[in-house]
């Protein structure tokens, strides 16, 4: 983190290594974060956006894997709209594969950066009450955070309408709430999730305004959490849908900008760790 802040680069750590950002799904934020992380460590970074609208995504995925493998890249950062796609790719390439978000499955570096952000402010993860709110069902960020935070001893609740709550989620070690006020009570951390517009089209939520009324984070609902509670969001935010600007931009309560900063630091650490080892997948 200090290295990230210092304005200096450690060009020798990943010198001569090639990092390819393979994004089958648009993501300015995560892609830029990995790109910066790689460059600050001296890697050669190449961005390969792949249109998801191509006729046969599957063929593109494996063909691309074969091509990249032939190019001898060292680190492959993959974002895909299908759960398990990086896992499939990892079977086909020799490079270390880093999952930058796959479908509704996982987004490991997001969870790592969230945990780092929380620990910097609260000094610990163990024993903290963390409320993850909104579209849990379609969220890879929620799943990765649940895995990481429960492993580190945080007490995690998920809060959202039943139509956006995946069946069996309680088996992952979380408490389920359908009411924001009850779900936020005693929370140390309030983690909001992005609500995709498609959810309204799919009928899982009747309208954006109804969602905001019952599940959007405003000052009134936040008042039910601990007075010291901090607010997080993986971005990009839908202001006025899952979070109101007054909360999102409150420097006393919001960690949202710091999450972005920690993202670069965590990804530097991940890249460095994986590049050190023999070629393997993560």
């Amino acid at each position: 983190m200090l290295l990230n802040r210092s304005g200096q680069t450690a060009r020798d750590l990943l010198r001569g290594k090639t990092l390819i950002n393979l994004f089958f799904e648009n993501s300015t934020r995560t892609r830029t974060s990995f790109e910066l992380a790689g460059k600050r460590l001296g890697a050669d970074v190449i961005n390969m956006p792949v249109a998801t609208s191509s006729v046969n995504k599957g063929e593109t995925l494996l063909d691309t894997a074969a091509t990249l493998n032939a190019m001898q890249c060292d680190l492959l950062v993959v974002r895909h709209d299908q759960s398990g796609a990086p896992s499939l790719l990892a079977q086909k390439v020799d490079a270390a594969v880093i999952n930058a978000g796959d479908g509704m499955h996982e987004h490991p570096t997001q969870a790592l950066l969230d945990a780092l952000t929380i620990r910097r402010h609260k000094g610990r993860l163990e024993g903290l009450q963390v409320a993850i709110c909104g579209d849990i069902g379609h969220s890879r960020v929620a799943r990765s955070n649940i895995h990481l935070l429960t492993a580190m001893g945080s007490r995690v609740r998920v809060v959202g309408p039943p139509t956006l709550m995946p069946p069996g989620i309680e088996d992952l070690g979380v408490a389920v709430f359908h009411d924001m006020k009850a779900g936020l009570a005693e929370a140390d951390i309030v983690m909001m999730l992005r609500l995709q517009k498609e959810r309204m089209a799919g009928g899982q939520v009747p309208s954006a305004r109804e969602f905001f009324r019952f599940y959007g984070l405003d000052a009134e609902k936040l008042a039910h959490a601990r007075p010291t509670a901090l607010v997080m969001h993986p971005g990009p935010m839908n202001r006025g849908v899952e979070i109101e600007s007054r909360v999102a931009d409150d420097p006393e309560r919001s960690l949202i900008r710091e999450q972005v900063e920690m993202g670069v630091a965590v990804r530097m650490a991940v890249l460095d760790t994986l590049a050190r080892g023999p070629r393997r997948n993560a």
Binding site: S83, G84, D102, G103, M104, H105, E106, R140, R143, P166, P167, G168, I169, D171, L172
Partner: peptide
């Protein structure tokens, strides 16, 4: 099949 496993894998479930 909808349930714990599908939820963990991030797969859309069939009840």
């Amino acid at each position: 099949t909808e349930g714990k496993l599908a939820t963990r894998l991030g797969l859309a479930g069939i009840p």
